[in-house]
Protein backbone atom coordinates (compact mmCIF):
# COMPACT_ATOMS: atom_id res chain seq x y z
CA UNK A 1 0.00 0.00 0.00
CA UNK A 2 2.65 2.53 -0.96
CA UNK A 3 -0.17 4.29 -2.82
CA UNK A 4 -0.79 6.14 0.47
CA UNK A 5 2.76 7.51 0.35
CA UNK A 6 2.32 8.42 -3.32
CA UNK A 7 -1.01 10.13 -2.57
CA UNK A 8 0.60 12.13 0.21
CA UNK A 9 3.41 13.26 -2.14
CA UNK A 10 0.74 14.23 -4.65
CA UNK A 11 -1.18 16.16 -1.99
CA UNK A 12 1.87 18.29 -1.19
CA UNK A 13 2.45 19.12 -4.87
CA UNK A 14 -1.20 19.96 -5.49
CA UNK A 15 -1.43 22.32 -2.50
CA UNK A 16 1.81 24.02 -3.54
CA UNK A 17 0.54 24.52 -7.10
CA UNK A 18 -2.86 25.76 -5.94
CA UNK A 19 -1.12 28.28 -3.72
CA UNK A 20 0.53 29.78 -6.81
CA UNK A 21 -2.78 30.20 -8.63
CA UNK A 22 -5.23 31.99 -6.37
CA UNK A 23 -8.05 32.61 -6.17
CA UNK A 24 -9.48 29.17 -6.80
CA UNK A 25 -12.87 28.21 -5.55
CA UNK A 26 -12.73 24.49 -6.15
CA UNK A 27 -10.33 21.80 -7.33
CA UNK A 28 -12.30 19.37 -9.46
CA UNK A 29 -9.83 17.02 -10.98
CA UNK A 30 -6.16 16.08 -11.14
CA UNK A 31 -4.90 14.58 -14.36
CA UNK A 32 -2.16 12.00 -13.97
CA UNK A 33 -0.12 9.82 -16.30
CA UNK A 34 0.82 6.44 -14.90
CA UNK A 35 3.03 4.07 -16.84
CA UNK A 36 2.33 0.34 -16.97
CA UNK A 37 5.77 -0.36 -15.54
CA UNK A 38 5.19 1.52 -12.31
CA UNK A 39 4.12 -0.47 -9.29
CA UNK A 40 0.96 1.56 -8.81
CA UNK A 41 -2.58 0.23 -8.71
CA UNK A 42 -4.83 3.07 -9.95
CA UNK A 43 -7.80 1.97 -7.83
CA UNK A 44 -5.65 1.88 -4.69
CA UNK A 45 -4.30 5.34 -5.52
CA UNK A 46 -7.83 6.75 -5.94
CA UNK A 47 -8.86 5.19 -2.63
CA UNK A 48 -5.77 6.64 -0.93
CA UNK A 49 -6.45 10.06 -2.45
CA UNK A 50 -9.99 10.10 -1.04
CA UNK A 51 -8.64 9.13 2.39
CA UNK A 52 -5.86 11.73 2.38
CA UNK A 53 -8.00 14.63 1.18
CA UNK A 54 -10.91 13.93 3.53
CA UNK A 55 -11.77 16.99 5.64
CA UNK A 56 -9.36 19.17 3.68
CA UNK A 57 -10.07 22.06 1.30
CA UNK A 58 -9.67 19.72 -1.68
CA UNK A 59 -11.93 16.93 -0.45
CA UNK A 60 -14.02 15.54 -3.32
CA UNK A 61 -11.40 16.19 -6.01
CA UNK A 62 -10.96 13.31 -8.42
CA UNK A 63 -7.99 11.62 -10.02
CA UNK A 64 -8.15 11.12 -13.76
CA UNK A 65 -5.52 8.54 -14.62
CA UNK A 66 -4.21 7.97 -18.12
CA UNK A 67 -2.52 4.57 -18.49
CA UNK A 68 0.70 4.80 -20.45
CA UNK A 69 1.87 1.66 -22.28
CA UNK A 70 5.42 0.36 -22.11
CA UNK A 71 7.22 1.55 -25.23
CA UNK A 72 10.78 0.41 -25.91
CA UNK A 73 13.41 1.41 -28.43
CA UNK A 74 16.04 -1.07 -29.53
CA UNK A 75 19.55 0.33 -29.17
CA UNK A 76 20.83 -2.06 -31.87
CA UNK A 77 18.37 -1.74 -34.75
CA UNK A 78 16.29 1.28 -33.70
CA UNK A 79 12.95 -0.57 -33.71
CA UNK A 80 10.30 1.02 -31.48
CA UNK A 81 7.75 -1.36 -30.04
CA UNK A 82 5.31 -1.69 -27.16
CA UNK A 83 5.19 -4.69 -24.86
CA UNK A 84 2.28 -6.28 -23.00
CA UNK A 85 4.46 -8.66 -21.00
CA UNK A 86 7.74 -7.81 -19.26
CA UNK A 87 10.09 -9.10 -21.93
CA UNK A 88 12.65 -6.43 -22.71
CA UNK A 89 13.99 -8.01 -25.89
CA UNK A 90 13.75 -6.46 -29.36
CA UNK A 91 10.92 -8.00 -31.40
CA UNK A 92 12.82 -7.25 -34.61
CA UNK A 93 16.44 -8.30 -34.01
CA UNK A 94 16.30 -10.10 -30.61
CA UNK A 95 18.77 -7.64 -29.11
CA UNK A 96 18.68 -7.37 -25.32
CA UNK A 97 19.79 -3.75 -25.46
CA UNK A 98 16.58 -1.77 -25.24
CA UNK A 99 15.71 1.58 -23.75
CA UNK A 100 12.44 2.41 -22.01
CA UNK A 101 10.74 5.31 -23.80
CA UNK A 102 7.44 5.30 -21.94
CA UNK A 103 5.94 3.22 -19.15
CA UNK A 104 7.75 4.60 -16.07
CA UNK A 105 5.59 7.73 -15.75
CA UNK A 106 4.14 8.70 -12.42
CA UNK A 107 3.46 12.26 -13.45
CA UNK A 108 1.01 14.95 -12.56
CA UNK A 109 -0.13 16.62 -15.78
CA UNK A 110 -2.63 19.29 -14.80
CA UNK A 111 -5.24 20.49 -12.35
CA UNK A 112 -8.81 21.22 -13.39
CA UNK A 113 -10.18 24.00 -11.23
CA UNK A 114 -13.29 26.14 -11.07
Amino acid sequence: MHEIAIASNLYKIVLEELGKNEPITRLKKIKLKIGKLTAVVPEALKFSWAAITKDTQIEGSELEIEDIPILLKCSSCGEEFSIEYPIFICINCNSTKTRIITGRELDIVSLIVE
Binding site: I6, N9, L10, I13, E17, N21, L32, L106, D107, I108, V109, S110, L111, I112, V113
Partner: peptide, 8 residues
Protein backbone atom coordinates in the same frame (compact mmCIF):
# COMPACT_ATOMS: atom_id res chain seq x y z
CA UNK B 1 -6.82 23.72 -16.58
CA UNK B 2 -3.53 24.47 -14.86
CA UNK B 3 -0.70 22.61 -16.59
CA UNK B 4 1.96 21.27 -14.26
CA UNK B 5 3.94 18.29 -15.67
CA UNK B 6 5.82 17.14 -12.62
CA UNK B 7 6.92 13.77 -11.27
CA UNK B 8 4.81 12.83 -8.27
Amino acid sequence: EIKIIKKV
